[in-house]
Every structure is written in structure tokens, then in C-alpha cells.
């Protein structure tokens, strides 16, 4: 077990400032590095920023983008904004979940390779239905194309 790397949080506090209003930006920075918010983040930030752990936990659980659970190496977000929804994004989501044995409750594979989640609008409405793979947009998807993408990632893993 390696020691937890707190320097990420120190860098975030330095960049955004040691104040309550920087909390969301600091948590976003932390999540970009750890790929989720590990439990060590809360007491450390509480001490540094002088905000209660409960308050930080409250913010982390309020916003959809923060995850307290570890995510996969490949995070696939299926856009289910209105434009993608009417262009049949749900069959894409279902095909991906079926291929990876995931569901609405179970979003990440046990080997921590894949996470499949939905997002409300990626701003790529003219390329609907769209998905992202680690923040890169894949436009005009179909269930078949999405499954092929996952298969190619598995083969190259």
C-alpha cells in the first residue's frame, strides 16, 4: 500500500487559492488526478481550508460530476440530452451495458477497465447521438459502433 499523494491537493489549493469559494475547483482538480474523490481528500481539505468535512462531503455529493467511487481506465459517457435521446441514445447505452455486464447501479467493471455512465448534453447536438471516451467525442454513434469501440479497447488492453 503506497502512501496517499497529498501533493495533488496542495497544488490545487495553491492554484485556486485557500478559500471556500475555491472548493469546487479544487475538488475538480483532485478528481481529474485521482479519477475520483478518495476518502483521504475530505479530512485533508477540511483542515487546510477550514471548512467542515460534512460541508465538503455535501458539495461532493450534490454535484453529479463528483464520484466517491473509483472509475475505470476508460470512462464512456453516453449523452442522453434531449437531442441525443430523440436520436436513440438509449439503445447505445443498453448495448454498452450489455457488452460490459454493467447496469444503472453498477457503472464500473470489476477489473476497473470500463465505466459507463450517462451525461445530460455534451453540447454536440448536431452530431447526435454522441458519446465520449475519456472526454473525446465520438459523433453519430450506433449501438454496433459503440460495441465495436469497446471490443477494440479490450483487444488492445
Amino acid at each position: 500500500m503506497t502512501a496517499f499523494d497529498y501533493t495533488v491537493l496542495d497544488r490545487a489549493i495553491e492554484q485556486f487559492g485557500n478559500k471556500e469559494s475555491s472548493l469546487i475547483a479544487i475538488l475538480q482538480y483532485a478528481q481529474e488526478h485521482y479519477r475520483y474523490l478518495p476518502k483521504e481528500v475530505f479530512p485533508y481539505l477540511s483542515k487546510k481550508l477550514g471548512i467542515s468535512e460534512a460541508r465538503i462531503y455535501g458539495v461532493a455529493t450534490f454535484y453529479e460530476n463528483f464520484s466517491l467511487e473509483q472509475k475505470g481506465k476508460y470512462v464512456i459517457k453516453v449523452c442522453d440530452g434531449t437531442a441525443c435521446h430523440v436520436r436513440h441514445s438509449v439503445p447505445i447505452l443498453e448495448a454498452l451495458r450489455k457488452e460490459l455486464g454493467l447496469s444503472e447501479e453498477k457503472k464500473t467493471t470489476d477489473d476497473l477497465m470500463f465505466t459507463v455512465e450517462t451525461v445530460a448534453c455534451l453540447g454536440a447536438c448536431s452530431s447526435a447521438p454522441a458519446i465520449t471516451l475519456n472526454n473525446e467525442i465520438y459523433p453519430t454513434m450506433t449501438p454496433e459502433k459503440a460495441v465495436a469501440l469497446v471490443k477494440s479497447l479490450k483487444e488492445n488492453a
Partner: peptide, 26 residues
């Protein structure tokens, strides 16, 4: 620039300001 963190309600004025203050956007 404040990046949102995925809460639709933060489009509402008082929720938006709460979010910029580093709070839950209510």
C-alpha cells in the same frame, strides 16, 4: 471562469451564486 460540476439547477440565479461561492447549488 467557474466550471460547473453537473447540476442543472445552477442555471437558477441564487443557486448559481451559491455554486460560485463553493457551496451546494441550492
Amino acid at each position: 471562469i467557474n466550471r460547473g460540476a453537473g447540476a442543472f439547477v445552477c442555471g437558477e440565479g441564487s443557486a448559481l451564486t451559491a455554486s460560485i461561492e463553493g457551496k451546494r447549488g441550492m
